[in-house]
Amino acid sequence: VTDTGAGMDLATQARLFEPFFSTKAAGLGTGLGLAIVYGIVKQLGGHIQVTSAPQQGSTFDLYFPASDEAAVPLPAQPAAAVEVGRETILLVEDDAGVLTLVSTVLSRHGYRVLAAATPAAALALVAAGDKAIDLILTDVVMPGMTGPMLVERLDALGCSRVIYMSGYAESEVAGKLLDERMVFLRKPFKQSDLLACVRRVMDSPRQPVPQSR
């Protein structure tokens, strides 16, 4: 993968895959994107080589172990029932691409979506809104405020249906940020998994919001 951006010096490259390390201005990123990529590549037994220099862009070469085994076709899956709704969802996600994609999927399936790129924007949307929030769908790790911290702020408004989503495995964030009763959706997820999870939580009884850790 090659880009023609600003490039990186050696000091930046040395910290490139550290979680939460970012050269972007505050509020423009979490520093988790490349850390997640690195983790996935390592889990598959591969490695990443980075070539970059200031003002010369960057190239990421990904290497994976070769296999002599023949590809096994996946069995055909029966078409899943389409999950639709009419409720209002507060969507909070600092990755612009994920925010747009999830918002589009939910809107096309009947939901009214209030989309916010930051926790602060979410609080402002709710304060200015004229409709109750039926579900909060939020990222876990965001600049300035975690998802659980945001939910605690919104708990006074009576919304107790919450789904947390993250690129980190549930085991990596549960002990630090999440209560075991919280519903967790691992990124990346399929459209069908997103819709099924939203519908399942919507149809469940309201529960008290667990406190973040």
Score class of each variant (00 low, 15 high):
170 E>K: 09
199 R>I: 03
195 L>Q: 01
203 D>E: 13
175 G>A: 12
176 K>R: 14
189 F>R: 00
168 Y>N: 01
181 R>H: 15
176 K>I: 10
177 L>F: 15
197 C>K: 08
204 S>N: 10
186 R>G: 02
190 K>H: 15
191 Q>G: 10
190 K>C: 12
184 F>D: 06
170 E>C: 09
168 Y>K: 01
206 R>T: 11
199 R>L: 12
174 A>H: 10
200 R>N: 12
190 K>F: 15
173 V>G: 03
208 P>L: 06
202 M>F: 14
190 K>L: 15
178 L>P: 08
197 C>T: 13
195 L>T: 00
188 P>K: 05
170 E>S: 06
166 S>M: 11
189 F>V: 01
199 R>S: 14
165 M>P: 01
187 K>N: 05
209 V>K: 04
178 L>W: 07
180 E>D: 11
204 S>I: 05
171 S>C: 07
190 K>D: 15
185 L>A: 03
184 F>T: 05
200 R>L: 13
165 M>Q: 05
193 D>M: 04
194 L>Q: 02
165 M>L: 06
171 S>V: 12
162 V>Y: 08
177 L>A: 11
197 C>M: 14
173 V>K: 01
200 R>G: 08
205 P>I: 07
170 E>Y: 11
184 F>N: 05
197 C>H: 04
164 Y>T: 04
176 K>G: 03
166 S>V: 11
200 R>Q: 15
163 I>S: 02
192 S>L: 03
179 D>N: 14
202 M>C: 11
163 I>K: 00
188 P>S: 09
189 F>T: 00
175 G>D: 13
203 D>R: 11
197 C>E: 07
194 L>K: 00
202 M>I: 10
205 P>G: 11
207 Q>E: 12
198 V>F: 10
184 F>I: 09
166 S>Q: 07
209 V>W: 06
195 L>S: 00
190 K>T: 15
199 R>A: 15
176 K>A: 13
202 M>A: 08
181 R>Y: 15
171 S>I: 10
171 S>Q: 10
163 I>E: 02
191 Q>I: 13
189 F>C: 01
196 A>S: 06
187 K>D: 06
198 V>R: 02
177 L>Y: 15
191 Q>D: 15
203 D>L: 13
193 D>C: 00
163 I>Y: 03
177 L>I: 09
191 Q>H: 10
208 P>C: 06
170 E>A: 12
177 L>Q: 13
172 E>G: 01
192 S>G: 00
172 E>D: 13
182 M>F: 03
176 K>V: 11
166 S>C: 12
163 I>R: 00
203 D>G: 04
169 A>S: 12
171 S>M: 08
173 V>I: 13
203 D>P: 02
166 S>D: 07
196 A>E: 09
208 P>M: 05
186 R>T: 03
186 R>E: 08
166 S>A: 12
188 P>E: 11
172 E>T: 07
204 S>L: 08
162 V>T: 09
163 I>A: 02
187 K>S: 06
189 F>A: 02
206 R>S: 14
168 Y>S: 02
181 R>E: 15
197 C>Y: 03
181 R>V: 14
164 Y>K: 03
183 V>P: 09
202 M>P: 10
191 Q>N: 13
205 P>H: 10
186 R>D: 03
172 E>Y: 03
207 Q>I: 07
169 A>T: 09
186 R>W: 04
165 M>W: 04
203 D>S: 12
187 K>V: 08
185 L>R: 00
172 E>S: 10
172 E>I: 01
165 M>K: 00
184 F>Q: 06
198 V>P: 03
168 Y>W: 08
